[in-house]
């Protein structure tokens, strides 16, 4: 009895050590956001929270349209996530569980596109957006991102393990067509996987920087990350303000993740019991 308790204690200690390493830079970001730039440059630097958070945040609000860019980011992240979840899981289900002429070649192409360095296509993609008149709009951020190789690949690997072939076979015997098999059999079984993909997509869309920086040409209508980069000046850097901005930008993500993380733990348990 005590042996297992001791083991559990050791386990938690090991996990907590990892947590410390994980959280330290985040903690320090928060420390910097609550102090002045001057405090940060001190040697040794301040390692505890200061009283300056609100004045730093006030300067963020003074310098950028925080609420406007937050709204844009929320719209982009939500739309992208919903579309990706649907398109990717449907394609992944097809690749994971069916063989059809060309499926190997098509999946190969998908992987190849994933290997192309993203920086390569930034400029030509911008020219396309100019020509179809989407420059400066959130469409240019949402539509190209609404299905991606990464998500299809991940869901395919996940579905291979998470959806038993027997279940699909049974549904087919019951007369369910392809889309019904996806909707009624696969979707309920892959909820934890979807939760993960949803979070990753949401975070990716939230933190995306290089592409919005180029395509959102109207500086008064940008996403949060682009607005933050406007804070980061080249020669006079007000670090504590930048850090306050960074903190504001990640806070909503942590909340989203906390909510989702609870959701999919419960789902996973149910799935396991039912399966």
């Amino acid at each position: 009895m005590t042996a297992t308790r001791l083991k559990r204690l050791a386990l938690h200690l090991a996990l907590l050590a990892g947590v410390l390493i994980s959280l330290f830079p985040f903690y320090w970001t928060a420390v910097m956001a609550t102090n002045t730039t001057r405090d940060m440059y001190r040697t040794p630097p301040k390692l505890v929270f200061g009283p300056e958070l609100f004045s730093n945040i006030a300067r963020v609000f003074e310098n950028i349209d925080f609420m406007g860019s937050l709204l844009n980011t929320v719209i982009v992240a939500c739309c992208t996530t919903v579309l990706v979840l649907f398109f990717d899981s449907l394609a992944a289900f097809t690749f994971a569980k069916y063989k059809f002429p060309g499926h190997r070649a098509l999946f190969g192409i998908l992987l190849l596109t994933f290997m192309l360095p993203a920086q390569l296509s930034l400029i030509p993609q911008f020219v396309i957006m100019v020509n179809i008149g989407w420059v400066g709009t959130v469409k240019a951020l949402i539509v190209p991102a609404s299905a991606n190789a990464f998500g299809i690949f991940w869901m395919r690997q996940y579905i291979k393990g998470a959806v038993p072939d027997e279940l699909i076979a049974a549904a087919r015997l019951d007369g369910a067509g392809f889309f019904r098999q996806y909707w009624n059999v696969a979707l309920p079984a892959i909820r934890p996987g979807l939760a993960f993909l949803g979070i990753f997509t949401f975070i990716g869309a939230w933190n995306d920087y290089a592409w919005p920086l180029i395509v959102m040409t109207d500086p008064s209508n940008v996403t949060l990350q682009v607005a933050l980069s406007q804070l980061n000046t080249s020669h006079n850097t007000d670090f504590s303000m930048v850090m306050a901005g960074a903190l504001l930008a990640i806070a909503p993500l942590v909340v989203v993740f906390a909510v989702f993380a609870r959701g999919f733990v419960a789902d996973a348990m149910k799935g396991a019991l039912r399966g």
């Binding site: 180029i214 682009v226 804070l231």
Partner: peptide, 23 residues
């Protein structure tokens, strides 16, 4: 007069916009 403060790589953005000939 609509001023815009552009962060990041200023030249890259200017060149891209000049190439695109819009905005």
């Amino acid at each position: 007069l609509k001023p815009s403060v552009i962060g990041g790589d200023f030249k890259q953005k200017l060149v891209t916009t000049l190439t695109g000939r819009r905005f």
